[in-house]
Each structure stands twice: as structure tokens, then as C-alpha cells.
């Protein structure tokens, strides 16, 4: 039983990261109905930018661990958000009126560009975050050793999701985003500047992805230029699992996916872990064709 709970915390830690990346996927999808395949690479860029800022500015020394980290997170989120906006302006905006799949190919092209740009700038070798930035404290929960940083990561993703949910549901700008997601034409008629909404979405979504990249760097220490592809795919799976376009769905999907992977590895087979996760996904979609929390969409006639 103890092993079961240990594996559960393993799954929650992985799932928290998936969820955070999935949030960005789902936001962009909700408004544009675009699967942003470059999202995983924005996550990579977040991890690399975080490393550069961390090693070049020594924020921790001047501001202390907490405020230094906070500033670092904000800077990374801001920069990756800007890259996201640029990406949209260059690669997606000209394709708004064309078939949806054209934008998908453009996104795949952008993914290749980002990946190789990171390789050319930082080199193909693995990059490593300096160790011991965060205190390595292990706390005991019901006699089970759990590293503190793992709890912090989960808390941070839940906090970000909560903040995002509040922003979308309770603020005026959030209402505009929801309106644009519902029906762009009608939103425009109501006086909402849809272009600005899209820009905002491309600021927030990639920023969350960048934050996730920074967290992965801080926690696991090792980053490389191809890592975004796997994380991006997992996050896309998570977003679909929860019902794409739905913010709590991304969170539920991410955490569920992490837990399925950990338990699948523990009790069935490690080598088949990803296959098991996809199999469960397919089963869920057969019975709930729009994901766990996705709304059932009536076909318009």
C-alpha cells in the first residue's frame, strides 16, 4: 500500500507539469480552434531562458530565494509570452481564414524552427540547471518521504490554474475571451476587439508553458532542445482527455494522465507505459467523445 501511495505522488508530480502545459494548449484552442504544435517548444524555450536568466543575473543572491524565484518566473513568463505573440503574428495570423489544417502545418513548421533555433543558440548538448537553488527538503506525509519541491510544483500549477480560472470567469477581459471562444463574429458585433483577445490568449498560453519549462528545469535539472516535443504531445493528450478548450478539463486531464502513467508503469509494465496511457485515452474517448469535462456539442444544422 505504501508503494501505491508513493507511485500516486510520483504521478501527481508529473501530472502537475502536464496540466500546466495543457492549460496553454487549451486556451489557444478554445479561442482559435488551433492545435498549436509549437506549444511544446515554447515550453523548451521557457526552460532555456530560465537557465540563462538564472545564471547571468544571480537574482537569488540579491533578492533571496523566494523573491528571486518569483521575479525569475515573471520574467520567463513575460518573455515566452512575447515570443508566443510574435509566433501568432507571423505564422498563424495570415491563416485565420484558411482551412484549419493549414495552420496546423504552419505550427509544425514553427515547432521545427524553434527546436533547431534552440539547438543552434545553446548547442546540442544537455544543459544543466545549477543545483541546490531550492532547498532539498524532504517531508514525511503519513510516513512517506516526499520532496518538498514536488509539493511546491503541484501547488504552483494548481495556483496558476485557479488564477487563470478566476481571470477567465470573473473579469471583464475574461468574459471577452469567453465570448470570442464562443462565437468570434458575434463577439466582434458586441464591440469586442477579437484581435486583441487573440493576442492576449497567445500571451497567457505560452507564458504558462514557459513557466512549466522553468519548473522542469528547476526540478529535474536537465534540459535539452528536443524535450518539448514529448511534453507537448503529453500535454495535448491531457488537454484532449479533459476536453479541449476547457480549463478545469486541462488540469484534470493532466493530473489523470500523470497518475495513469505512474500506475501503469508500476503495476503493468514500464516499457508499455505510454501505450497504456494512450489506450486508456482511447477508451475514455469512445465512451465520452468530447473528453471528461468537454461539453457535448450539438451539431449545428
Amino acid at each position: 500500500m505504501e508503494e501505491f501511495f508513493q507511485q500516486l505522488t510520483n504521478g501527481l508530480a508529473v501530472g502537475g507539469i502536464y496540466a500546466l502545459i495543457a492549460l496553454g494548449y487549451t486556451m489557444v484552442y478554445g479561442v482559435l480552434k488551433l492545435i498549436n504544435f509549437a506549444h511544446g517548444d515554447l515550453f523548451t524555450i521557457g526552460a532555456y531562458l530560465g537557465l540563462t536568466l538564472l545564471t547571468s543575473m544571480s537574482l537569488m543572491d540579491s533578492l533571496g530565494v523566494f523573491f528571486g524565484l518569483l521575479l525569475l518566473v515573471l520574467m520567463v513568463m513575460g518573455l515566452v509570452g512575447l515570443i508566443g505573440v510574435l509566433l501568432d503574428q507571423i505564422a498563424y495570423k495570415p491563416l485565420r481564414q484558411s482551412p484549419r489544417l493549414s495552420a496546423v502545418v504552419s505550427a509544425l513548421g514553427a515547432s521545427i524552427v524553434f527546436q533547431n533555433a534552440v539547438m543552434l543558440i545553446y548547442g546540442a548538448r544537455f544543459q544543466v540547471y545549477p543545483q541546490d537553488i531550492l532547498p532539498r527538503i524532504v517531508i514525511n506525509i503519513f510516513g512517506m518521504p516526499v520532496p518538498l519541491i514536488r509539493i511546491m510544483i503541484l501547488m504552483a500549477s494548481i495556483f496558476m490554474m485557479g488564477a487563470l480560472y478566476f481571470f477567465i470567469q470573473r473579469t471583464k477581459v475574461g468574459t471577452a475571451i469567453r465570448a470570442a471562444a464562443e462565437d468570434q463574429g458575434a463577439a466582434r458585433l458586441m464591440g469586442i476587439d477579437v484581435n486583441r483577445v487573440i493576442m492576449l490568449v497567445f500571451l497567457i498560453g505560452p507564458a504558462l508553458g514557459g513557466a512549466a519549462g522553468l519548473m522542469v528545469g528547476l526540478y529535474y535539472g536537465q534540459i535539452n532542445f528536443t524535450m518539448g516535443w514529448i511534453y507537448g504531445l503529453k500535454a495535448f493528450t491531457a488537454a484532449i482527455l479533459g476536453g479541449i478548450g476547457n480549463i478545469p478539463g486541462a488540469m484534470v486531464g493532466g493530473i489523470l494522465l500523470g497518475v495513469i502513467e505512474a500506475l501503469g508503469a508500476a503495476y503493468i509494465s514500464i516499457a508499455w507505459k505510454d501505450a497504456i496511457a494512450f489506450f486508456v485515452l482511447i477508451l475514455i474517448l469512445i465512451f465520452r467523445p468530447t473528453g471528461l469535462l468537454g461539453e457535448r456539442v450539438a451539431e449545428k444544422i
Binding site: Q7, V216, Y220, A265, A266
Partner: peptide
């Protein structure tokens, strides 16, 4: 991948 805790636990 980055997280091999599940494997190590097993």
C-alpha cells in the same frame, strides 16, 4: 523523459 521516480520506486 525527465521523471523516472515511478521506475525507481518499482
Amino acid at each position: 523523459e525527465r521523471d523516472y521516480n515511478a521506475i525507481l520506486t518499482k
